[in-house]
Nucleic acid binder design. Structure first.
Lengths: 179, 179
DNA sequence: GGTAATTAGTCGCATCTGCAACTATCTTAA
DNA sequence: TTAAGATAGTTGCAGATGCGACTAATTACC
């Protein structure tokens, strides 16, 4: 916890003022780096489930998760916004999932540019089989935190998401879709 | 905060037990997804600094940050372990940074397989110019959190890192390098 | 002392993904 | 009605990155 302090860091008025002559940046304490590393490690841990077991990549899993969570069909555009994934990436994932018959799509009669996506019976079965495993992995990853700490962590993530404009809850998304 | 509950989730004994028949997984509450999204958003915010301004990518910045933080030269292998980046990625970043004369390398006489990397004068200047900007960006990203919340967040990250075996502090790394 | 196993670093290959251009469709407004 | 602009989705392209094979050098072990 305590770190060997350089004289510049010994008595900073505020963290922000610590960037003095000769100061440095410790990657291990740099939040962006830590987030990146943590996210990629967590992704790798999960990829064992959906990747090795079921041959899915992250974009495919995101499509699956979005369709599995929602009751009604939705557009690829919606999935893209929702998961903050580029529409071309979603497009390719949709193509792959259709090829494997996990999802199907029907033309929207009201707007023939877009398609309504939904899980097939096979896709629903995959989702039902997959998501409990992933929730369990999530629990394993969070195993080092107490119940209260998990709540705190979720709350802090929410705050960061909010200040980065990432806060789109499933309800907001629903509202947007339903208009 | 409150979510439209399906009957299955109305009275779960514990979170872990919530994966019942008909239960679902809300991506927006799924920590791995949130971490991924947050990390990529934060990366994009930082890339404005080192990317657009200085033409660096993440691996290059990691090499720069590692060499800038340490007093003495170190090997590419060390940088790779330290930053948890694949050695081929580091190798390419090193090549690029050498081409632009931000770093230099000398053969290690004791082990002629490896090179000791260090910043050139020009590289040091870049580092000195860059890292305060990045620390400031970090502060902007954390602006939504109070001082106490930032401490809590850092602590929670540490715990997660520890339980994922990511906990390699700069001190440990030093010790390993120095042997 | 010599052979096998290990390690640092490089590179080709395959994959992934963001960007931007493109088609088709819809909307707006003159 | 028609033309201009916006939007859904697809695709070619290029850059980034992980993997694994490879070289060269070192260490371990018999």
């Amino acid at each position: 916890m305590a770190k060997a302090m350089s004289s510049e860091q010994a008595a900073p008025i505020r963290e922000e003022a610590a960037a003095k002559k000769g100061a440095r940046l410790d990657l291990f304490k740099f939040v962006p780096f830590r987030l990146n590393r943590l996210a990629s490690e967590v992704s790798n841990a999960l990829a064992v489930e959906y990747g090795e077991r079921y041959g899915l990549d992250i974009p495919s899993w995101r499509v699956l998760a979005t369709l599995g969570f929602r009751k009604d069909a939705c557009s690829a555009q919606y999935v893209a916004e929702c998961t903050r994934t580029h529409k071309s990436t979603i497009s390719r994932a949709v193509t792959a999932l259709m090829k494997r018959q996990f999802i199907e799509r029907v033309e929207n009669e009201d707007d023939r540019r877009e398609f309504r996506l939904r899980l097939t019976r096979k896709g629903r079965a995959l989702y039902e089989e997959l998501f409990p495993r992933l929730l369990q992995r999530e629990q394993e990853i969070l195993a080092g935190l107490s119940t209260q700490e998990r709540r705190d962590f979720a709350m802090l993530l929410s705050k960061l998401e909010a200040s980065l404009g990432l806060l789109q809850t499933s309800e907001e998304a629903d509202a947007k879709e339903a208009y």
